[in-house]
Amino acid sequence: MGDFFVLALSAGTPFILASLGEIFSQKSGVLNIGIEGMMLIGALAGFSVAHHSGSPWIGLVGGVIAGSLAGLIHGFLSITLMAPQVISGMALTIFGFGITSFLGKPFLGLPATSFETSILGVTPPVIIALALIPLSVFILTKTRFGIHIRAVGEYPEAADSAGVNVSLIRYLCVLIGGGMAGLSGAYLSLAYSPMWREGMTAGRGWIALSLVFFSMRKPIFALLGAIFFGALWILQFKLQGLGFGVSPYLLMMIPYASTILVLSLLSSERIRGRIGVPEALGKPYLR
């Protein structure tokens, strides 16, 4: 059982990282459905930086930087140019898949420069992900920055007249979102399944996105959901091995179906107000 939990946690770590980033982005009012693309970019960048530098740690940093740069495209389009965020995010996903397939070719089949140490049976990035959860809660609820994030996500006009730089806060949050998605991708290519393969995120970005809605943008719930979805991810392979008659494909419908269910159950106005869907989510702001 303990082993299974460790496996589920390891499989759920990409979801934790990417969803935490998206929570920041959405809380500030920017919807970014390009997680899958940013994760792929982070995975390839992480892999290649680690390959050239010889250090998986520098690889992780590379993944974060590349993911943030990818996020920056979305930020520029949706914040500065006030583009429709769904379109820009979709473009990011398509582009991310294309560019990593193109640039990743020389890295196919190479061994990854992976982590050699493990702590309590998990690789270091898993610990980082776990540490980032209380940190995110702290930042979002207890700091000035966190209050500003909520302000620009709920009522940018008011935040603006109170002297908060709406664009700056949103840019920072989108960069955090991109960086965390990049880290999530780099974790995949450097620690979880150490190698580079085309489209290796295999839909994890979409699961991470659904987790943000599933968890109602609360980091703690995102952690629980990530472990749950991670357990499903593991089970799809385990059940096959044990000869159970459940198709892995049917099992992997559960994250998406449960997200739709949760959204439908929590849809009444009263609950929506309480769980705090950012009022300005998806809406550009012009001074």
Binding site: A91, F102, K105
Partner: peptide, 23 residues
């Protein structure tokens, strides 16, 4: 003899430009 992905790269770029052009 180009690696795969160029169709997606072009489509992604087009969508970026169109989304930005909307402004």
């Amino acid at each position: 003899k180009l690696p795969s992905g160029i169709v997606e790269i072009f489509q992604g770029m087009t969508l970026f430009c169109l989304a930005g052009g909307q402004f």
